[in-house]
């Protein structure tokens, strides 16, 4: 080890469902340098102290969305968070908040996945474009693309759900990532499925459970800004509401 190497006290929340009644903490001294990420710190712990420690990871470059976890109480991607930024402090790593803990740092994400799939996250073309031949693209100008592109950057890591108090208080809330995806498809000029998605957006557990805390946008590792998408979704829903008052559909 280099002489310049420093160490940090890293506490990890452990939970082994077959042995433990509830989670407990385990602390390790982890050496680090300026490029050591939280993920690498976990590798170090797994390789040198606790092979049984479980956590999800894959790409190491903040794009696969596997390694969302709480670092000192804040949702982060472990691979994009560095020990150097916590210098002089201790570090506490916990599984993502607001999800059931499956084991150690692994949480049960099935609720998030179900919600993402519930809101019809795919292009629903209108009748005219339904059978477009496969040698032709939809016209989409760079500006039309810009309307949704930012909201298509979500990596489904779950950090926004861990940050959202409304999801904490009411797990029925469709939540930031799924509502963002809903808005993303609604404003894509290739899509004509807004009507089919409207019931989810318009419902109590849709956009209207959001109180614009804004923490989801704060913690989003990809700067997707879900709270913005939800506000824009609320505008969309409110317009729909007013039109429906003037001219009810059924």
């Amino acid at each position: 080890m280099e002489a310049t190497q420093k160490t940090m006290k890293v506490t990890v929340l452990r939970y082994r469902p077959e042995q433990d009644k509830e989670p407990w903490e385990q602390t390790f001294d982890v050496p680090y340098h300026k490029d050591t990420s939280v993920l690498e710190a976990l590798f170090y712990i797994k390789d040198n102290f606790e092979p049984s420690l479980s956590f999800r990871w894959s790409c190491r470059m903040a794009v696969c969305g596997s390694c969302g976890m709480m670092v000192n109480g804040v949702p982060h991607l472990a691979c994009k968070t560095f020990l150097r930024d916590y210098e002089g402090k201790d570090m506490k790593i916990e599984p993502l908040a607001n999800f059931p803990i499956e084991r150690d740092l692994v949480v049960d994400l099935s609720d998030l996945i179900e919600k993402i799939e519930r809101i019809k996250p795919y292009i629903i073309p209108d009748a005219k474009n339904a059978n477009m031949p496969l040698n032709k693209n939809f016209k989409q100008t760079p500006m039309q693309m810009e309307a949704y592109l930012q909201f298509a950057q979500c990596i489904n890591c779950g950090c926004c759900y861990a940050a959202c108090p409304q999801y904490k208080l009411n797990p029925k809330f469709i939540g930031p990532a799924a509502l963002t995806l809903l808005y993303r498809y609604n404003v894509d000029n290739r899509d004509a499925g807004a009507k089919l998605r409207a019931p989810f957006l318009n419902s109590e557990e849709g956009a209207w459970s959001c109180t614009f805390v804004g923490y989801c946008s704060e913690v989003c590792p990809k700067h997707v800004d879900p709270s913005s998408a939800i506000q824009l979704g609320k505008k969309m829903s409110a317009t729909d509401y007013v039109f429906n008052m003037i001219k009810p559909e059924h």
């Binding site: 077959e18 908040a97 059931p100 803990i101 499956e102």
Partner: peptide, 16 residues
Amino acid sequence: SFRKPYNPPVKKMTWW
């Protein structure tokens, strides 16, 4: 199933 997920308690009044 060997699952036994742990649901951390929610402090409904004081979470903030």
